[in-house]
Design a protein around this nucleic acid. Sequence first.
DNA 1: TCAGTGAGTCAACAAGCGTTGAGCGAATGG
DNA 2: CCATTCGCTCAACGCTTGTTGACTCACTGA
Lengths: 188, 188
Amino acid sequence: MSMPHRSRAERRRATEARILASARRLFAEKGYERTTIRAVASAAGVDPALVMQYFGAKRDLFTRAVQAVPELPTASDADALTDQLLTTLGLKLGGLPEGVLAMMRSMLTDPAAADQVRDALTRQIEAVTAAMPAAEDPELRAALLVSALLGITIGHQLLGLPPLRGAEADRIVGIIRPAVKSLTASAD
Amino acid sequence: MSMPHRSRAERRRATEARILASARRLFAEKGYERTTIRAVASAAGVDPALVMQYFGAKRDLFTRAVQAVPELPTASDADALTDQLLTTLGLKLGGLPEGVLAMMRSMLTDPAAADQVRDALTRQIEAVTAAMPAAEDPELRAALLVSALLGITIGHQLLGLPPLRGAEADRIVGIIRPAVKSLTASAD
DNA sequence: TCAGTGAGTCAACAAGCGTTGAGCGAATGG
DNA sequence: CCATTCGCTCAACGCTTGTTGACTCACTGA
């Protein structure tokens, strides 16, 4: 059934990956505080002490579990910007990676996660500001736009708001896109 | 200096109120899990056991601390609806009550808080849906609208996103209101 | 074959948590 | 003035948590 004989290094990397995957899943599901090392270990079929041995401390495990997907290239025109926003916040391409969900889940109750999200969103806001034609208050408008999309992501992926829960991403994007475009354009 | 002689009942109600206020502040600041009974008691200048004696259990204290402000009357026309939405999500009238902030702070990591927020938002969504002219997908549009405003509230009150942090509510409302109105109207 | 490495387990620690029951001491009311 | 109530504290409980050090034992490489 299983792979017959793997080298020690292979097995080690496999267990480490299994632990990391369990950690990501649980962090995304329950957040930092309510996820215990014991639960991660048990989900990975391993002793709690091994988790510490491989990752050092719970905080380090969390850091490893949520370390960001590579930054998207800065969009130049409004259409590309819209797509970038929708993708970054997981409204396209079948949801967000579990690590990002874990970070979002913990951002309101864990200061470290809050800092990380704040930084990421600030970068997004700067990109949107730069790509925005000379409207009044471009920074504020960009921040409001990004926050609004964040809220939709939360309602959809983290809170499971009934009408959003069942809706496919395409229908959501279909409704949002024109609104986003009208906000990034200079007209109000 | 202080009130000279208060009755026993008065003093008791005063301490109970002090405990509840401390609980609200800490729950709003740190969320359910990271707020300890000991911290609440210490902030209220009181022994932890007294908190239990007055409120029964930590969960009950939380319930008391976040019990909702009275529901707003359902708006009939689009303008009133917009105002109601902006007010409910704390974007008008100088921020949200601390109990609501506490509920929001905990909604991603505490299942009970999540349920309560989901219910409150669902009611809001139903109100918006009902008040919306016959557009396509009114429920989905309403849910997206409410989620977007929720996101703005989070970015503003809970995350403290730099460009939103300094902005007064009036400027934010000034930018949002036309967008909300254009979304609640039937045109897309 | 055999010392040695290293993956993984076991048992325990200290700290912090929610929660409890007994007790103190001042205000109360007759 | 005395017995009682009651707001409040004290000290401790049982439990869970992150974390650690010693141990086991299968596999490695010479």
